[in-house]
Amino acid sequence: MLEVLPETQDNLLAVRVSGELTNEDFDLYRELIWDRMKQYGAARLYYEMVNLSWVKPGAALENALFDLVHGRAYDRVAMVGEKIWQKWAANLISPVKKKGVRYFDLHERERAMRWVQTGEE
């Protein structure tokens, strides 16, 4: 499930994902981030993962291709999670993002939001 958080504004997309991510969730995410990229030239992303149990492989592959093509249009990206594989995923995709990806543990969510909003911790 993809939930758009109230901090979403201007070129910042803030989302929380949980449970099972579907093709529809990824379609909505790509639409929302792409709209910001087109409007502002670059988009900041706060991506929080809570109780994430499954990501459909086809949807994840489509999303990875989107990131490869549009990675330079990302500004600050904060990934917040609770599992070691989420940290590994953040490190794996970091090189394709213009400013990389910073990973924060779930208990650091406020720090992550502050960093993605202002660039300061």
Rank of each mutant, 00 (worst) to 15 (best):
M1E: 12
M1S: 13
E3S: 13
V4L: 07
L5G: 04
L5W: 05
E7Q: 09
T8M: 08
T8S: 15
Q9K: 14
L12I: 03
L12E: 04
L13Q: 03
A14H: 06
A14F: 05
V15A: 01
R16I: 01
G19L: 07
G19C: 08
L21V: 06
T22N: 10
E24Y: 10
L28Q: 12
Y29S: 03
E31L: 11
L32D: 05
I33N: 01
W34Y: 12
R36Y: 03
R36W: 02
M37D: 05
Q39T: 13
Q39R: 14
Q39A: 12
Q39C: 09
Y40Q: 01
Y40T: 01
G41P: 03
G41N: 04
A42M: 03
A43K: 02
R44N: 02
L45Q: 09
L45A: 08
Y47P: 08
E48T: 08
M49I: 07
L52K: 05
S53M: 12
S53Q: 15
V55G: 06
V55A: 07
K56N: 14
G58A: 04
L61S: 13
L61V: 14
E62Y: 13
E62P: 07
N63K: 04
L65P: 04
F66M: 11
F66P: 09
F66E: 09
L68P: 12
H70S: 14
R72I: 10
A73R: 13
Y74P: 03
D75N: 03
D75Y: 03
R76G: 01
V77M: 01
M79E: 09
M79T: 11
V80S: 08
V80G: 09
G81P: 02
E82K: 07
K83E: 14
I84R: 10
I84A: 15
I84E: 14
Q86S: 09
K87I: 04
K87W: 07
W88E: 12
A89R: 09
A89G: 14
N91Q: 11
L92K: 10
I93L: 15
S94D: 10
P95H: 11
V96N: 13
K97S: 12
K97F: 15
K97E: 12
K99C: 10
V101D: 00
V101R: 04
V101I: 06
R102H: 00
R102V: 02
D105R: 10
L106P: 01
H107Y: 15
H107S: 15
E110W: 00
E110Q: 07
A112W: 05
A112Y: 02
R114L: 07
W115P: 01
V116G: 01
V116L: 00
T118L: 02
G119W: 04
E121N: 12
